[in-house]
C-alpha cells in the first residue's frame, strides 16, 4: 500500500500535455472500469467513498469519466489507434485513480504498466503488454495478457492468469489458482491452496506452500520443470509421469513407464488426502518437504 501511495504522489508521465483532476461520487462496494490504451495505470483502494482520477493525458487522448448505476467508467480514448496495430505516444495517458477499498475493479489496456494496491475485492485486468503489480488484499484476481510479468502480493480466494509469455510470481496465495502460459514461469507460494491448475509449454512451475485437505493439483509442462516444496507432514497422493524427464519425489524411486523412455510414480505421503497430478514431456519433476 505504501508503494501505491508513493506512486500516486510521485508518478509522472513522459511529456504528456494535459493534467487530469476528476472526481465522481461512488459508495464503497461498487464497480470501477478503467480503459487506457497506453501509458500507466495506478490504482489505490482507500477507506473512503468516491473515485478520484488524476494524471496526465497525451495530446491525442480524451478522458471520459462517467457513472451509470453502480459503475464508474474511466475511459481514455486515443485518436485513431488500433488495439493491435500500434498507437502514438500522444494517445497515451498516465492515470492515478483512487477508489473505495471494496471496489470491484476492471482494467483494460493495450500497453500499460499497471499497479494496484489496497483493493480488497475482485480485480480483472486485460492487457496486451505491460507489467502488472498487485498488492495484498484482493479476494480474486483475473489476468489476461499476451506479454506481461505479473507480481501478486496476495490473493485470498481465487486467481486466474492466462498469459502467452511473461513470468508470474504470486505470494500469499490461498484457495484456487489457474495458470496458463506458453513460455512463462509460475512461481507460486501460499498456504491453504485448494485447487491449482497450471499449464505451460516451455515455462517452469514452482510451488512452495501448504495444501488444504482434499486439495487437487494438476500441473502440466512440456519442456518446463516442475518443482514443489511442501511443508513437513503434508498429506498427498502423487501421480507423476514424464515422457523423458526425471522424477525425484522425496527420494522415492520411480518406475519405468509402460510407454517411452521416461518414468512414472504413484506415491502417497501421509493419508494422501490431497491429489497431485504432474505430467511433463521432457521437463524434470522435483518434490520435496521442508
Amino acid at each position: 500500500m505504501n508503494r501505491i501511495l508513493t506512486l500516486l504522489a510521485l508518478s509522472c508521465a513522459p511529456a504528456l500535455a494535459s493534467p487530469i483532476n476528476e472526481q465522481i461520487d461512488l459508495p464503497d462496494g461498487n464497480e470501477v472500469l478503467i480503459e487506457n490504451t497506453c501509458g500507466e495505470i495506478t490504482v489505490a483502494g482507500l477507506e473512503r467513498d468516491g473515485v478520484v482520477v488524476r494524471g496526465e493525458l497525451g495530446d491525442d487522448a480524451e478522458l471520459n469519466v462517467s457513472r451509470s448505476g453502480k459503475r464508474v467508467s474511466v475511459r481514455v480514448k486515443g485518436d485513431g489507434e488500433g488495439f493491435f496495430s500500434g498507437w502514438s505516444e500522444d494517445a497515451c495517458a498516465t492515470l492515478r485513480v483512487e477508489v473505495p477499498v471494496h471496489t470491484e475493479l476492471s482494467i483494460e489496456a493495450v500497453s500499460a504498466e499497471i499497479e494496484i494496491g489496497g483493493v480488497h475485492s475482485e480485480i480483472s485486468v486485460e492487457v496486451v503488454s505491460g507489467d502488472i503489480w498487485i498488492g495484498e488484499g484482493p479476494s480474486s484476481v483475473d489476468i489476461e495478457s499476451v506479454s506481461s510479468d505479473v507480481t501478486l502480493k496476495g490473493v485470498t480466494r481465487e486467481l486466474e492468469v492466462e498469459l502467452v509469455s511473461g513470468d508470474v510470481t504470486v505470494e500469499n496465495a490461498h484457495g484456487r489458482v489457474d495458470f496458463t502460459s506458453v513460455s512463462g514461469d509460475l512461481n507460486l507460494s501460499g498456504a491453504g491452496l485448494s485447487r491449482v491448475q497450471a499449464e505451460s509449454v516451455s515455462g517452469d512451475i514452482r510451488i512452495v506452500g501448504g495444501l488444504e485437505s482434499g486439495a487437487r493439483l494438476d500441473l502440466t509442462c512440456h519442456s518446463g520443470d516442475v518443482d514443489m516444496v511442501l511443508p513437513k507432514g503434508t498429506s498427498g497422493a502423487f501421480e507423476v509421469q514424464s515422457f523423458s524427464g526425471g522424477i525425484d519425489l522425496m527420494g522415492v524411486k520411480p518406475k519405468s513407464r509402460e510407454y517411452g523412455p521416461g518414468a512414472s510414480l504413484n506415491h502417497a505421503i501421509g493419508e494422501g488426502s490431497a491429489e497431485i497430478s504432474i505430467t511433463t514431456f521432457s521437463g524434470n519433476v522435483e518434490i520435496k518437504e521442508q
Partner: peptide, 9 residues
C-alpha cells in the same frame, strides 16, 4: 513487437 512474441510462442 507483439507479432514477434506471438510468432515466437
Amino acid at each position: 513487437e507483439l507479432l514477434l512474441i506471438i510468432e515466437q510462442n
